[in-house]
Every structure is written in structure tokens, then in C-alpha cells.
Computed example of a mutant assay.
Amino acid sequence: MENLNNKKLMKAKLKVEELKEFYKHIVTYVLVNLFLTFIWKFSFKLFGNFIISNQFDNGNFTHIPIWLIWGVFLMLHAFKTFDFLNLFGRDWEERKIDKFMKE
């Protein structure tokens, strides 16, 4: 029984650490993108005519905003943190072992 409680405590601590990292990621995302949008004007070529930038190009779709690219990674981080896509999550091995043990 004590072993089960220790295991639950460790999982809870790990989940809290994941949440803290995700919240830090959100704050960093907002602050850096605000800085890039209002202070620092930059751009660099990605490939071909596509340019990563914090500036808009009047609808020509040659500038890819950095907040969009980073936002995709932030969304994936959210999926992982909040178990939206729990295909091979931490408990996957345990669930599979339990399933095979019952068979």
C-alpha cells in the first residue's frame, strides 16, 4: 500500500513539474513575441522566397511569422502536458503490461 502511495506521489510531482515547464513556456512565448513585434525588427530567409519574420507582408505569404511557428510547438507542448494525445504516454507501458497479464 505504501509503495502505491509513493508511486502516486511521484506521478503527481512529475505532473506538477510538467505544468510548471508548460507555464514557463507560455510566459516566454508571450514576452519574446511581444519584444520581437514591438522592439526588434528582423527577418531571415528560410528556404526559397519564404522568410521568417515578425513583420507582415500584405498578404503575399512570403513572410512566415515566428509566433506562428513557435505557436505550433507550444500547442504540441500543451497536448503533451495535458494528455490530449496520450498514444504512448508514461502509463502506456503499464497499461500494456496489465493488459497482457490479464490475458
Rank of each mutant, 00 (worst) to 15 (best):
I69R: 02
E94W: 07
D83K: 15
F79M: 14
E94I: 09
F88C: 11
D83H: 12
I66Y: 08
F82R: 04
R90H: 13
I66F: 09
G89A: 05
L74T: 10
W92T: 13
K96W: 07
F82M: 08
D83G: 10
P65E: 00
W92V: 06
D91P: 01
L76V: 15
F79S: 08
T81L: 02
I66Q: 02
N60Q: 15
F100I: 12
H63G: 00
F88W: 10
F79G: 07
F100M: 12
I97R: 03
F61E: 00
I69P: 05
G59E: 01
G59N: 00
G71N: 00
F61P: 01
N60K: 14
T62W: 02
R90Q: 13
K99Y: 13
H77N: 13
H77G: 00
K99V: 02
A78D: 03
F84Y: 15
H63S: 01
A78I: 00
N58I: 00
L74G: 04
G71A: 04
L68K: 09
D83L: 13
N58E: 11
F82T: 04
L76P: 07
I69Q: 05
F61W: 11
L76Y: 15
N86A: 07
K96E: 06
I66R: 00
A78H: 05
F61K: 05
I97P: 01
W67N: 05
F73P: 01
I64N: 02
F84L: 07
L76K: 08
R95H: 14
K96H: 06
F100H: 11
E94R: 08
D98F: 11
T62V: 14
L76S: 12
F82D: 02
L68Y: 09
F82Y: 12
V72M: 03
T81N: 11
L85C: 09
F84C: 03
W70V: 02
M75H: 12
F73L: 12
F100K: 09
K96V: 04
A78K: 02
A78T: 04
I66W: 03
W92E: 03
R95V: 07
K96Q: 05
T62S: 08
R90D: 12
P65K: 00
N86M: 04
K99E: 08
F88T: 09
F100L: 15
E93Q: 07
K99R: 08
L85Y: 08
H77Y: 15
D91C: 09
F73K: 06
T81W: 05
L68S: 08
F84I: 07
W70Y: 05
L85R: 04
M75G: 13
L68V: 15
D83A: 14
E93K: 11
F79L: 12
H77W: 13
